[in-house]
């Protein structure tokens, strides 16, 4: 963390607070930063529990996306038939607006947690899948020749060449998917929350909106942003750790 973003952020917060004071706009329209912090401190456990619930959905979806994305990427790398069969559906899933199909998924799946995870997975799956597939195809032809010359099986080529070569690509995809899983989880919670399923930060946002507790709504949004930034930073750190020895060869 460097200073410029912190200073810029503080400056914006100060201007925001100053503008709220100066114009006297009521907190149920635009709350100032101080009101938002106060709303959080009034019931911190309440919001943090909801955040935890959203994060459980997010990380479960990220884990499912990793397993699905990597296995399907291996499948399309191994077989032309599998590529033709899988790729169009993966793209179709990627371009389907989750808001449109979330109500259906929630109705079909029934069990709320599984439904939320399913929605978040649909959003988060694609970057992991497509970047891992590109990574599996990334080894230079010379290295593939070398494996051939030494009689390597497809399994050995996958394990010793394609998978390690795909790691940086997978990690780049995972970092994008991390943010998307959070967005997917929140969108699904919105839909589910509107249907009365009370859990997660999105439900708190909805509920605070209904009750005109706008500072609390903002507090929930701020928590969501912080969670997104933390997930991104954590996945970036994971990438640096796993790739610390890599370089050009």
């Amino acid at each position: 963390m460097s200073w410029p973003p912190a200073i810029a952020g503080l400056l914006v917060l100060a201007l925001w607070q100053g503008a709220v004071w100066a114009t006297g706009v009521p907190a149920y329209l635009v709350p100032g930063p101080i009101a938002i912090v106060k709303a959080f401190l009034a019931a911190p456990g309440f919001l943090l529990l909801s955040l935890a619930s959203t994060l459980v959905v997010t990380f479960t979806a990220l884990a499912v996306s990793t397993v699905l994305g990597v296995s399907l990427a291996i499948a399309i790398t191994a077989s032309r038939w599998a590529r033709a069969a899988i790729e169009p559906w993966a793209v179709a899933l990627q371009v389907t607006p989750i808001v449109a199909i979330a109500p259906l998924i929630i109705a079909w799946v029934g069990e709320p947690f599984a439904a939320l995870v399913a929605c978040a997975t649909i959003v988060a799956f694609f970057p992991i899948f497509s970047s891992t597939a590109i990574g599996l195809a990334s080894p230079p032809p010379e290295l593939l020749d070398l494996f051939r010359l030494n009689g390597a099986s497809r399994w050995a080529t996958l394990r010793l060449l394609r998978l390690p070569a795909a790691l940086p690509y997978f990690l780049a995809g995972l970092r994008i998917s991390g943010g998307l899983a959070l967005v997917g989880a929140v969108v699904a919670e919105f839909v589910a929350g509107a249907g009365g399923f009370a859990s997660g930060l999105a439900y708190r946002i909805l509920e605070s909106g209904y009750r005109l507790q706008i500072p609390r709504m903002f507090a929930a949004l701020v928590l969501l942003s912080l969670a997104g930034i933390a997930i991104n930073a954590a996945l970036a750190a994971l990438g640096r750790l796993l790739l610390r020895h890599r370089g050009e060869a």
């Binding site: 230079p140 010379e142 290295l143 070398l146 030494n150 390597a152 010793l160 390690p164 050009e248």
Partner: peptide, 25 residues
């Protein structure tokens, strides 16, 4: 076979790279 580029495995040490042909056997 020696190619125009060294084409080593970037994640592996020199020893692991040299081990590769034997490892595959």
């Amino acid at each position: 076979f020696v190619f125009q580029d060294a084409t080593l495995l970037p994640w592996a040490t020199a020893e692991e790279n040299v081990w590769l042909p034997l490892r595959l056997r």
